[in-house]
Simulated scan of single mutants.
Amino acid sequence: MSLSPAEEPPLRISVDDRPDDLRSLADWLRREDQLRGRVSFRPAARPGDGEMGGVVDVLSVAFGAGGAGAVLAGTLSTWLASRRADLKVTVTARDGAKVELDARRVRDVAEVLRELERLAHGPDQPE
């Protein structure tokens, strides 16, 4: 079941093949005052008998004005820096634009902030 464009959250976050890490990230994000109540865990629909397909759980993040995008980016950067295992996080905007973050290569927090702000606001909106 797919959502209509109006029902899609502004951002979806997935962690490749690591549901425990995604739950950990959800906990980190929910501790932030500006994100509280804006983060929801959406388990993926499981394939039916005889169906093939990858199963990816996602976090949905909704936010408006007030700097929540910067809080999301900062929290995500801090969370990635705290991980001991290699992992890849994908942040997808409503329009399908994506940023993939490899935990082995998160060195430039400012760049992560810029990319997530761009996704949150879209290419045609001022930051």
Rank of each mutant, 00 (worst) to 15 (best):
R107K: 08
W28T: 15
E115C: 12
G53R: 01
A73G: 04
R84S: 13
L29I: 07
A85T: 12
G64K: 01
P9Q: 08
R38C: 13
S60H: 15
E7D: 10
R105C: 09
L3H: 13
V56Y: 06
A81T: 10
L11S: 03
D21V: 12
Q125Y: 10
R84K: 13
A26E: 07
R23L: 12
V112S: 02
S82R: 08
G67D: 09
S40Q: 14
R84M: 12
A6Q: 12
R107E: 07
L11W: 08
V99P: 00
E32W: 00
R105N: 11
D95Y: 07
R94T: 05
E51K: 03
A103F: 03
D16R: 15
E32A: 11
R83C: 14
A6G: 02
S2F: 07
G64Y: 02
R30P: 01
S4W: 01
G54F: 11
G64D: 05
V71R: 03
L3I: 03
L35G: 06
D86K: 05
P123H: 15
M52S: 11
L22Q: 01
R118A: 15
G37Y: 05
G96W: 01
M52Y: 04
E8W: 05
A103I: 03
M1F: 06
S14Y: 04
P47W: 00
D57H: 07
A81K: 08
E51S: 06
R36P: 13
V99A: 01
E7M: 09
L22T: 00
A97P: 03
A110G: 12
W79M: 04
D17R: 14
E117W: 08
A97M: 10
D95T: 14
A93D: 11
T92A: 06
E8I: 14
R83I: 12
G54I: 11
E32Q: 09
E117D: 15
A68T: 00
G48I: 01
P19W: 00
R31K: 14
D16E: 15
S2D: 15
P9K: 08
A45T: 04
